[in-house]
Design a protein around this nucleic acid. Structure first.
Lengths: 208, 208, 208, 208
DNA sequence: AATGAATGAGATTTCATTCAT
DNA sequence: TATGAATGAAATCTCATTCAT
């Protein structure tokens, strides 16, 4: 079944409709960040938003739909930000730095949303039990792999298995963000400098 | 409340008692690996073990206790394996390679348990909502930090913020394991080679 | 409480009002026929009619009122048709044949409406739990009983308990219609011939 | 998914288990008979049985399973009774009389159960919306059709479309039972005599 | 040592209905 | 006249846990 939002037979969502949906998605993100995916419930979301449980199911078809939106809307927003930064660079090494740096920058500015998003991505399963966002993550790896290969071809980067390294780099980056998100005293800017330097040495030609 | 196992007023656990507990912990690990932390229930564990739900609560105080054991017993077992490998090395760089290599090796040999452990570590919360295993992870980082600092002091490793890099390295490693665990077609040995090479370039003096 | 339609303090229903009510009643009939009485809801009726749920409660006091109309309007329409056919006959046997034949004919031409009507009649209960249309059915039996008695008095029909037989005949007839309505491949005209012949033999004098 | 009862991994149901299940099925039948299929709920069944709602879902997988049992167990019990009566007869006409007579006799002795059964058969739908017991009813018609054909072949019964008439006879019979079940002042024995006589005239050779 | 039975809290979801606009 | 929005009750069902045997 389509979501209420996407139903073509439904009129353009009103301003109130949009505001309520945004409010609920926001409240859901806060709840996931606070109590974790497993303990996120309609009751907690409603309480956080200060509305009745009924409102939630009036605006959304299911809990899954809300959590999917929490994850995908924010993921997409982040990706638009990162993409623009990458596009501004020409060299592969510059693009890698732009990607990682802007990823830390963007998500570092939205701690709650990031926590929610990563919790949902890690936990959301399809009915058959498989991870629901596996393909999105694979696409990211594909994108970075391509950049790395170009860098190798252009002689900027040293030889290595581009796909494996792309995966490692992305895992590092979310890893650092998770460390920061769960330990708020972390100085993310300092971590960012260290990570960029770490990656630079790991893949750059000039160091080998 | 202490767990039934640890209660000092309780007689030494019999062989049967120990076997049952192990059986239940094993079944719980399989369930977590299959359906994920959020959908793990007594009913599913009992079904997987082929026993009644009552047996579980007879041997364990709570669901939390079982899942804690799934994570900590395996974590400890893994750590003993890794520790021995580290102890066999003398140089810091050798110890880092031994750590990462043996971590991939050990967990790579126990996919189901690893999936369960990392799912539980990522999701288990204390009553107040905070992550339950934060201190264990911090200890790991502390251990690796110390090795890195020694390597820097001995001139084996280039200068960098040792704590931040220790965290990055550990996140990389679990990241690669998670990639493999959720994509079973991954060639973990090949990934291992790439990762060790990646880290080597990132922290070694000879490349800078 | 009276229905909005009947409320004497309310102005004469406009054309639009009447059209909307008819549209809703029609949609409700389709929903009942499709998903059954128990699963008929405002949401489904509104979706079927392509309108919002609010419209329904604007035009009707309650769900019960709509379903009552679905059943009674169609029942009344059917009865007017049947009545006219009966009136055109003079003999009791002829009137019985006219009744049964025209009942099959009329409802056989409106499958969806018939399904809805019979589902509602079978399921609609008053607040105290008793069947809501018991008296309507009793009246039908009364009417047929009278015809049968006249037939017996006139010597057309053999002796039997007229009231019991009237009930049997009416149950047969709705039974055949239900068979057809739930098995659309049924040839209702053929069934009609068989049923009329069956009844004729059962009550007629010439066969005994 | 199999029902709890049928699960082969489950031990033979204990006496208590059987008793509870029977108690719940009985309570469910009473509720359906009283308030109708659409208003039958776990809450009402539990209240009627004097137990908590949880007990019901402990012993049964779903509401559907309970209602299915209410209908099918009783239907099967009735059929065993009727079958034995049919088997004791030799002529087709005798078998028809035995069938109808014993059907009225058996169900007439269990008013509540009959009401529940017929309500469930009339209302229970599969997920796609089609009637769940259509095939069971068709089988009954098949069985009676065969008897009628034999009667025609042996010259006991007059010519008619056996299948259509079988359906009519069975519809008559349940119709009479429903009349009695919803109007408890009805004298079912008297109705039975009238119905058997009615059918006898309708299909017998000697009357034509 | 084991387990079947029971329970009540809480989960998601559907629903009829009310109301402000 | 219409409708989007909201609500709270009630529905089915899952769950961790307790308890008697």
């Amino acid at each position: 079944m389509r979501s209420k939002q996407e139903d073509p037979g439904r009129a353009k969502p009103s301003f109130i409709e949009q505001a309520r949906r945004a409010q609920i998605v926001e409240a859901a993100a806060e709840v996931v960040a606070e109590v974790g995916y497993a303990r996120t419930s309609f009751a907690r979301i409603a309480a956080k938003a200060g509305i009745s449980k009924g409102v939630i199911t009036y605006h959304f078809d299911s809990k899954d739909e809300i959590l999917r939106l929490v994850a995908t809307e924010f993921f997409a927003e982040g990706w638009r930000y990162i993409e623009a930064r990458i596009a501004a660079e020409e060299t592969a090494a510059g693009q890698v730095r732009a990607w990682i740096g802007s990823e830390l920058e963007f998500f570092g500015a939205h701690r709650t949303r990031f926590l929610a998003m990563s919790d949902i991505i890690a936990n959301h399963r399809t009915e058959d039990g498989s991870h629901a966002y596996a393909s999105e993550l694979a696409e990211e790896v594909d994108g970075l792999t391509e950049i790395l290969r170009r860098g190798q071809h252009d002689g900027e980067l040293r030889p290595f298995d581009a796909r494996s390294v792309a995966n490692i780099i992305l895992r590092c980056t979310t890893g650092v963000l998770e460390t920061w998100a769960t330990n708020p005293e972390t100085d993310l800017e300092a971590e960012s400098v260290v990570l960029l330097d770490f990656i630079d040495h790991a893949i750059g030609r000039k160091h080998s």
